[in-house]
Design a protein around this nucleic acid. Structure first.
Length: 273
DNA sequence: TACCAGGACGTGC
DNA sequence: GCACGTCATGGT
């Protein structure tokens, strides 16, 4: 099955390459992306972006297609920040994905003090060993492992697939989530959710903000990493040093739009827009 | 070869 | 509470 969407506000490259997701690869004229145990081929054909999958309902929501992004990009440009205006204009087809919550937990624990190509490799190796083998029209692939499957592996496994010192974090947090589930995190306000996320091993303020935004759809989150910290200094003339205060500064500026704007700024800075 | 990467943790103050 | 050293490892 397939569906399509106005390509002006759905650009696969910007959406996938902007640093919010790690499980995708270039294929044909577009990309194959994987989420939880599902797969989707997405490409732009003229004025339409087309998505093909065995589960179109899942990916329609995954790509956040029920939301109006023209309003978001206009809001972003209204702040009069040159980098933000340039990024929102040239990347207006960037959408914030609705990703699997547990997959976001482990992915962003892995992301700490790490680079994106290596993060992708670590996640790929974890999936290939512990993820259920699946098959679809696009070929074979491995699902992202359940927390139970991750909890069944030990620290040495995570070390062996190149996770480095994050081995203990993955081991401990997967055991905890396998035992508790994550329904205890549903229905919380954004500040309450962040407070709870900070109690998991390997989850600090930045990773908590990423899980909150990308896993729980909390757009009043603003993760501050080395790139957005650089944005703060160079594009907002910021002088604060404390990263929590920098996050609070951005939240005060952008409110419910923080998550979207953060992604325009992060991606735009990396692209040297 | 150094430095960097979507940082968090433990220790000492 | 805050500053600081440390933590693996591949990318650049």
């Amino acid at each position: 099955m397939k569906f399509d969407f106005n390509a002006e506000y759905f650009n696969p490259e910007h959406t996938l390459e902007c640093g919010q997701v790690f499980r995708f690869r270039q294929y044909g004229d577009g990309y194959i992306c994987y989420s939880a145990d599902k797969a989707c081929y997405v490409y732009t054909d003229g004025v339409k972006t087309v998505a093909e999958s065995d589960d179109c309902d899942y990916f329609y929501r995954y790509f956040d297609l029920e939301r109006d992004y023209s309003e978001i990009t206009e809001k972003a440009k209204s702040f009069g920040v040159p980098l933000l205006t340039r990024s929102a204009e040239s990347c207006k087809g960037l959408r914030i994905l609705n990703q699997n919550r547990e997959e976001m937990f482990y992915s962003f624990i892995i992301s700490q003090n790490n680079n994106i190509p290596r993060i992708k490799g670590i996640i790929e190796r974890i999936c290939s060993v512990l993820g259920e083998k699946k098959e679809c029209a696009l070929g074979e692939y491995h699902a992202f492992p359940s927390s139970a499957a991750l909890a069944g592996a030990d620290e040495a496994f995570f070390k062996s697939i190149g996770a480095g010192y994050r081995d203990a974090y993955l081991s401990q947090t997967s055991k905890r989530i396998a035992a508790e589930g994550i329904s205890r995190l549903e229905g919380l306000s954004t500040p309450e959710l962040k407070k709870e996320l900070l109690t998991y091993k390997g989850v600090g303020p930045k990773v908590a903000d990423c899980i909150s935004l990308f896993g729980f759809g909390k757009t009043d989150s603003f993760p501050v990493d080395v790139w957005t910290e650089k944005v703060y200094r160079e594009d907002f003339n910021g002088t604060l040093k404390d990263k929590n205060k920098i996050t609070q500064y951005f939240l005060n500026e952008f409110g419910e739009y923080s998550g979207y704007i953060q992604q325009y700024l992060f991606y735009g800075k990396r692209l040297k827009l």
